[in-house]
Amino acid sequence: MKVLFLGATKGMGRALARRLAERGEALFLLGRDLEDLERSARELEVLGAHGSVGSASCDLSEPSGFRAALDQADEKLDGFDTVVVTAGLFATQPELEQDEAQCERVLQVNFTGTVLLCEQVRKRLLSRGGGKLCVFSSVAGERGRKPVILYGATKAGLSYYLEGLDHKFRSDGLQTITVKPGFVKTGMTEGLDPPPFAGEPEDVARVVLRAIDRGKPVVYAPPIWRWVMMVIRCLPRFVMRRIGF
């Protein structure tokens, strides 16, 4: 595989990029901090990535830079065939309610920025016969829920977009893989109380890599969240109103 990766510096992205590297895949990293990207790139080379790992700057809140970043990746990888986006922002509901600027940033990065990037990626992949697009959404986008109204809304929008892509373009060779993590212990959730079934990034990476290989359209990670969310989706509104989940 020739993988373009946005979000490899931290959390689940770091864990997944490591697995890809250990398998000897070719990688190109995008992200906000070039120096930090370089450090991750060197690590992935130590772990066994194919050839040298390149990187370029790309910030989801600045769509004007997407084209140049994708050009660099395409040139280095001689046309990427797989794209993974784990990048995303989180803030608690009270934080987002209080801080409008932060709220705008989260809405922009998680939805608008991510979707615009996927649009450009989609066109490039389709123009060369398809490929794989794996994007991290969240179980928070499955139902409107009190503790994650705003963040959940960005992920709901993203999940719907990705589902639509998969319906429309799978037959053209573009496999879209939507990852829906439950609570995972990363820097993003540091300081929050972990609920039951909280996962580790390494376990998520293993599950997601298998899903990418198989082109599975939706993957819950850790897998138990598939069943948890099945129940949550069935709960009537009057119950959702009452519970704090």
Partner: peptide, 9 residues
Amino acid sequence: TLADRFLEF
């Protein structure tokens, strides 16, 4: 524990 990268080998 999250600052756990190999940097050069």
